[in-house]
Design a binder for these strands. Sequence first.
DNA 1: AGCCGGAGGTGAACCGGTAAAGCTCAGAAG
DNA 2: CTTCTGAGCTTTACCGGTTCACCTCCGGCT
Lengths: 342, 342
Amino acid sequence: MSTPPERVTIKDVAAAAGVSKGAVSLAFNHKPGVSEATRDRIFAAARQLGWAPNSSARSLSRNSVDTIGLAVCRPARLLGLEPFYMEFISGIESVLVERDCSLLLRLVGSLEEEIQLQQRWWRERQVGGSILVDFHQRDPRIAPLRKLGLPAVGVGHPDLTGGFPSLWTDDATAVAEAVRYLAALGHRRITRVGGPTGLGHSAIRADAFERTMRELGLNGGRHVETGFSGEEGARATRMLLLSSDRPTAIVYDNDIMAVAGLGVAAEMGVSVPDDLSLLAWDDSQLCRLTHPTLTAMSHDVHGFGAEAARVLFDVIAGKEVTSRPVSTPSLVPRGSTAPPRR
Amino acid sequence: MSTPPERVTIKDVAAAAGVSKGAVSLAFNHKPGVSEATRDRIFAAARQLGWAPNSSARSLSRNSVDTIGLAVCRPARLLGLEPFYMEFISGIESVLVERDCSLLLRLVGSLEEEIQLQQRWWRERQVGGSILVDFHQRDPRIAPLRKLGLPAVGVGHPDLTGGFPSLWTDDATAVAEAVRYLAALGHRRITRVGGPTGLGHSAIRADAFERTMRELGLNGGRHVETGFSGEEGARATRMLLLSSDRPTAIVYDNDIMAVAGLGVAAEMGVSVPDDLSLLAWDDSQLCRLTHPTLTAMSHDVHGFGAEAARVLFDVIAGKEVTSRPVSTPSLVPRGSTAPPRR
DNA sequence: AGCCGGAGGTGAACCGGTAAAGCTCAGAAG
DNA sequence: CTTCTGAGCTTTACCGGTTCACCTCCGGCT
């Protein structure tokens, strides 16, 4: 596609510095074999000519790439609203910058499309490895991508990532904490508005929710399944508030739906937190902007992204890495939760 | 970084198909010179071996790259909340996919850092060109990047993009529409809560705001400058509502700040829209989730991103491209605006 | 004097593709 | 029966780096 106008190569630099191109290569890679003085001359010449090593040529002869891939499979309209991803990406990049690497990002429409994409990326050696996110139950990506030999790290519970080294937040414990908190406030009818159950972490949270409710001797627990969008969160909330045995507390799977829930409560004249407690997940800044502010399960998404990148580099380097959890989300109480009005 | 285990090259495919590698190259690039039958054999062999052309080798010999760059200079915490960027990116990608290209994304901390980055990207031929966003007044990126010869398209008014072909939304007209609408409702004390004036489009909107207010004979117009964050939007709103001649309408520069403003109004017992009208910008889904819903200036951000990518490809291809506006944001009235209570 | 060793280079072979020139052969034109 | 033509391949020279074997000094040691 591009046809650069001028092109200065290592040969030009070598000529300018009066050395061979081998010497330039040595100097630029900080390898021994060139004297201090020559090194300086080489760098001066390179700076003068505005030269930097052509990354294609470099990765061709080194047989390596300094790019990692991330494909995200959610509708763009949702993604934009999920503060999670940008935070996560910025965490990844904080690590990439240190190593002069880059992130290849792609939004895909389906898991099948992602499989195609990852295969291409890897076969064409466009990436050295990938970070895989949003695991489904019996995720179709696992078999083909493992067979491919793609170095990758999975973001999700090891039960879901099928053999890929993985990093995950202990959602089960977090859900339990959220439910126990609401129960301690006196809530008995608690509903969870979750993501699609096909999505692995939604299923895990759903399980943990039911288990905890049972442990607490509460049988008023219910789930509603949504697609994570604010609109669906709003619809679910509206439906719940209209039902005969309406919940006194709702736990949302992200913060957009919680904000939407708050909107619906206001619209229907249901007072939060007096008549209804709301608990959000992921705790972006949004949770502090509403009135009342939103109690939320909070975690360090930036750090999560960074850790994922670090682990991926280890995988690529061939190190033995073991799956492990990152820090568990913890409850940050704010204005949207209170004891139910008796 | 990566050292792939097995590596199948064009030579292996050629051998498997019983032809020379030149023939494989011809076949894979859909060039004439190979018979139907041979082509089929080659593709069969490639599929069999799971081969795809190594992208480094390809771009080295073609002297071209199929990657474009995007560096975004805003704090990650803000970015995650700005639905704008993900939408914009998804627009870009919709075009990239058609052309089998990729997006190199980087979040940077300052414009100086971006200059360094773009220089590296271009000199190392990591990208074929870049999309430049968030222009400042007398943007420091312009001179060095033009000198560099980087193919680029600027997202912003031509007055700001200093010679880069550019694409922009006509914010001046949009601001005028917003102000006229509020004025028509009967508002006279209208305040604008804008982004940092260093940012080009903020300045343009500020100008247009003042001009329109003057044209309408209103001198109760004021600006508050913020950094686009929800927190700052909240603080600005709080300050405005506490002032002696408090505005009856506020125009925000993005939708996060508008949501924050709504929160503050609720917190202070100011009724929206009866006591205060609020108008948001960019119109993400968020605007439909609050109560009341937010009147907003709406535009097609996805299409904007797609168009930017298309223009960049033209620039890279050496076509003569001229700067032009994309569709002007238009007002979508919702529940947060009404005539002021007299 | 002769030999050795290491610092500081050089040169050529490669990495895996693309592109352009060259070769071969069947069939059409003269 | 040549000669020409062009379709269908092969050959070979790159692309711009990295790497490794090898060369050349120069000082120190025996």
